[in-house]
Design a protein around this nucleic acid. Structure first.
Length: 672
DNA sequence: GGAAATTGCGTTTTT
DNA sequence: CGCAATTTCC
């Protein structure tokens, strides 16, 4: 927007000129590199887009350009990292090209897979009514399978369910065998490789039999569908004749394969990404994916966007300096025309609370200077790093939203309530049955297993429950009554179902948690969300695929979103920008985390993560760290700023130490 | 035998 | 704080 409009002229050979009546002056709105990418012809293209280089803008204009040149919007598929970003992009494209952009299909790989599998999955044995398992559900199912195989009775330490899930998931996402993954990354569990293999098989069989799909299955199954069902593949790839993929550096092999399958018919695919911002290796993503793209798609044209429109030069200098140290990088040097701006600052605080108080105070100062709260973000490596700050901000009445960390949907009580809905929607969903049954007084693992076995055989669940005797008899009868009153699940609206089950569940909630008033508010929130859905199946699928972030805390001020600052994990801050960014806990051992010290690859990923955090800032950047913090897990005393700053020369970074105020040691109040 | 209560321990990042 | 192993209770 700040660009000189008249500087650029469309410099393309006449025969390549776009159709005569384009409605937008692309050359005026874009720089030459962006323009080249936006107006690229058919075939595969790769856009390497540095941080803040107008990547999103380019994609938006690309969508508009395609529509403008006569492509039917419903033939365009836009794959993004979150569904929200897809929506926002299509909205902005709509401002350029009109409401037609609404007909573009946009979403995450997972949401699109969900859609396509419900429509075409029958061909590979997937019924449209399948249930999506979120991370926690999937782990619970693994625990169930493990118990059935009797694998937890071994004396040698067997990996816990979360770890097993991690291994299995990585195997799926990297298209490697489980044995390979164990060997490469979990060698300390090599003894159990055989049992883990059996467990993986059992887990997969259980899912298939019960029509349950975890996140990875959505992609795996879509790939299967495209590979095996020729008719479906033809239909799908002629439906989506232009495919655009955002954040390609964070896709994995599996996703790359899905794209390849989707595009076999037409080869029209444009992917956009930045290898320096690849931060999802733990999910099987690799920045190499971006470099392999031309191999997977022969004839790829490559475009590079290097001009940064977001940050001032001092911030870019620091960012470039950090990424220069990276072991592997692809030459790309960001520059900007925003020369002036304050130097980024490195701030040393005595302890965690001093750090929090500094940030709160600085935010107030910035507000005086005219920087609104909505233009401020505090970023951190791990979700819990902001706990102290959250308390401090609340104390001072500074409103904030938190992104990342435990979602409200993942809290036990919300999952409990939802399990009842899911049982109604899919009576084969044994994971949810198990959860529901275990909540009943007098039911433990054994009884739950027995009931489960009977339930899957019967088509009248309530009879099975009523037939049970013993201590749990009354509880199971109540459950049966509640479920029965809601059966014919299709007809009862989600919000009403939530209400009914809420009544049944409330006594259990009160029994189980001392802090139940807080939790009932979450359930009220769930009810509000449910009101937006006419169909239970959509409600459940959406909750699994795009969980609303934050907990009930931020329901208080729903319409004053612009008045709040953002606290976010760096992962959740991807693609976003603010006038002022604080990165906290920039202390060696926290960031990079001690867990990443093991391998160089992990350390390199932490560096890229740091790079991402720094490049979120437009004008003000503060890196803060407490000194002399004892880290329980590593037993280390952390007192040195992040090693990523070791090679940063002092003229790129203002180094400050907080001084005591009023001579009473206000900044140093923390005790260790 | 099986459910419930208790203790000990490890704790990133997400669709 | 949540998970898994352990002890206590019915």
């Amino acid at each position: 927007m700040e660009r000189e409009v008249k500087t650029y002229v469309l410099k393309r050979p006449a025969e390549e000129a776009a159709p005569a009546k384009l409605s937008i002056d692309y050359a005026a709105a874009l720089n030459p590199q962006q323009l080249a990418a936006v107006t690229a012809g058919d075939g595969p293209s790769l856009v390497i887009a540095g941080a803040g280089s107008g990547k999103t803008r380019t994609l938006i204009y690309r969508v508009a350009y395609l529509i403008d040149s006569g492509v039917d919007p419903s033939n365009i598929l836009l794959l993004t990292f979150t569904r929200k970003s897809a929506q926002e992009m299509l909205e902005r494209a709509g401002e350029l090209i009109g409401a037609r952009s609404r007909r573009v299909c946009g979403g995450t790989f997972h949401s699109v897979a969900n859609l396509l599998l419900r429509r075409y999955g029958r061909g590979i044995g997937i019924e449209p009514g399948f249930t999506i398992l979120d991370r926690g559900d999937a782990e619970d199912l693994i625990a169930l399978c493990r118990a059935q195989l009797g694998l937890n009775e071994k004396d040698k330490r067997f990996p816990r369910k979360g770890t097993i899930m991690e291994m299995v998931s990585k195997s799926e996402n990297t298209l490697k065998s489980l044995d390979e993954i164990i060997l490469e990354e979990f060698s300390h569990f090599a003894d159990h490789a055989e049992d883990l293999g059996r467990l993986q098989k059992a887990y997969q069989a259980a899912k298939r039999q019960k029509q349950l799909l975890d996140y990875d299955d959505l992609l795996v199954a879509l790939r299967q569908l495209l590979l095996l069902d020729e008719t479906a593949r033809q239909t799908i790839s002629s439906q989506y004749r232009y495919i655009l993929v955002d954040e390609y550096q964070d896709t994995n092999r599996l996703q790359a394969e899905v794209i390849r399958q989707l595009t076999t018919a037409h080869n029209n695919v444009m992917v956009v990404g930045d290898d320096s911002q690849s931060i999802y290796a733990f999910r099987g993503a690799t920045f190499k994916n971006i470099m392999d793209f031309p191999v997977l798609f022969p004839g790829t044209k490559i475009y590079k966007l290097e001009e940064n429109y977001r940050s001032t030069q001092p911030i870019l200098n620091l960012a470039n300096c950090i990424i220069d140290e990276a072991a592997e990088k692809y030459t790309k040097r960001l520059f900007t025309r925003k020369i002036d701006g304050p130097l980024p600052a490195l701030v040393e605080a005595a302890g965690e609370n001093a750090q929090s108080r500094f940030i709160a105070q600085k935010i107030l100062e910035l507000r005086e200077e005219g920087v609104p709260l909505s233009e401020v973000a505090v970023l951190f490596r791990s979700s819990f790093h902001s706990f102290d700050l959250e308390i401090e901000l609340s104390r001072r009445g500074l409103p904030f939203v938190k992104r990342g960390g435990v979602k409200f949907i993942e809290t036990a009580h919300v999952k409990d309530l939802l399990a009842h809905l899911r049982v109604l929607a899919n009576p084969m969903d044994t994971v949810s049955w198990h959860r529901v049954l275990m909540l009943v007084e007098g039911v433990g693992p054994k009884k739950a297993q027995d009931l489960l076995a009977a339930l899957v055989k019967s088509d009248k669940p309530s009879d099975v429950l009523r037939g049970a005797s013993g201590r749990s008899g009354q509880g199971l009868k109540n459950l049966a009554d509640t479920l029965e009153s809601l059966s014919g699940a299709g007809e009862v609206r989600p919000a009403e179902q939530v209400n009914h089950i809420y009544e049944y569940y409330l006594p259990i909630l009160k029994e189980q948690y001392d802090d139940y008033p807080k939790r009932t508010r979450d359930l009220d929130h769930l009810h509000t969300i449910a009101e937006g859905y006419p169909k239970v199946s959509d409600f459940l699928a959406d909750l699994a695929l795009e969980p609303p972030d934050g907990s009930a805390i931020d329901v208080d001020a729903p319409d004053r979103d612009d008045e709040r600052l953002v606290l976010s994990t760096i992962h959740s801050a991807k693609g976003l920008e603010w006038q002022c960014v604080f990165v906290i806990w920039v202390v060696d051992g926290k960031f990079p985390s001690v867990y990443s010290f093991i391998t160089d690859d992990e350390l390199e990923e932490e560096r890229r993560l740091f790079y991402v955090s720094v490049t979120r800032a437009k004008r003000h950047l503060f890196l803060t760290y407490p000194i002399n913090v004892y880290d329980k897990t590593s037993g280390m005393l952390l007192s040195k700023p992040s090693r990523f700053l070791d090679h940063v020369s002092s003229d790129l970074l203002d180094t400050l130490a907080l001084v005591e105020e009023g001579g009473r040691g206000d900044w140093g109040r923390d005790s260790y």
